[in-house]
Design a protein around this nucleic acid. Structure first.
Lengths: 114, 114
DNA sequence: GGCGATTTCTTCTCTTTTGTATAACAAAGC
DNA sequence: GCTTTGTTATACAAAAGAGAAGAAATCGCC
């Protein structure tokens, strides 16, 4: 049995960032910033784009090219949006984590259980 | 800036399984079973051992060899236990996920968010 | 108004780390 | 010596990560 549609850790972070930002604000630079500011973990811009590419290949994300912004260096952006299968994969993966971590002190949402 | 002590997806699952099982029950076979039953995702035995080895090299897990069980084929087992740094890495990684997923419908614990 | 400097973004290239599968090996009791 | 329970070894594929290079836009300046 193959692994299936389970996502890697960074893939989950990228998808979550897109969801937080919303389709009208999620692109390479903002996605990276969202991850770094929320998690205090480094995320190189190369890693972000590589992951976006992988997610697109799997059909979990789709892009839309914007018109160039009329500002210095404001070139076209590739805005990302999560697809239905992407949402499904996201749920699948977070559920798995949730079930494994639920109830552990070192798990999710410490202090909020029960 | 390097990535740091953040764990991969499967590493989190393995560590969580060890924690759930407790130091006196966590070894290759039971860890695998715990992951498969809780997450409905396949986990080959080879993947489990490889990951345990990596976690040991990083100092996140330590082993203790049991005496052979007095049953058919009951050979010595390598029981795994999480170390203090392992616990810290676990918290670091789950917090990151938590912060990214908190509040999203497709995030952790759907239906439980306020 | 032409054009190089500068800014913002994306691509490309390379390497390392993780994740997976399967087969081989080991040690116990029957 | 066969069967059972476990661990190791091997080989590879996929994911993650860093940083430099490339593209497209505006700005400033002469």
């Amino acid at each position: 049995m193959p692994k299936g549609d389970f996502l890697g850790e960074f893939e989950i972070l990228v998808l979550a960032a897109i969801e937080r930002l919303g389709d009208d604000d999620a692109y390479g630079v903002t996605i990276r910033a969202e991850i770094e500011s929320r998690t205090a973990r480094a995320a190189s811009i190369g890693a972000v784009y590589a992951t976006l590419g992988r997610l697109e290949r799997k059909g979990f994300v789709r892009f839309r090219i914007s018109d160039p912004e009329p500002v210095r260096g404001g070139r076209a952006r590739k805005y990302a949006a999560i697809t239905a299968p992407g949402r499904r994969a996201m749920r699948l993966s977070t559920r798995a984590l949730e079930r494994m971590l639920d109830g552990l002190e070192l798990g999710l949402r410490p202090g909020r259980q029960r």
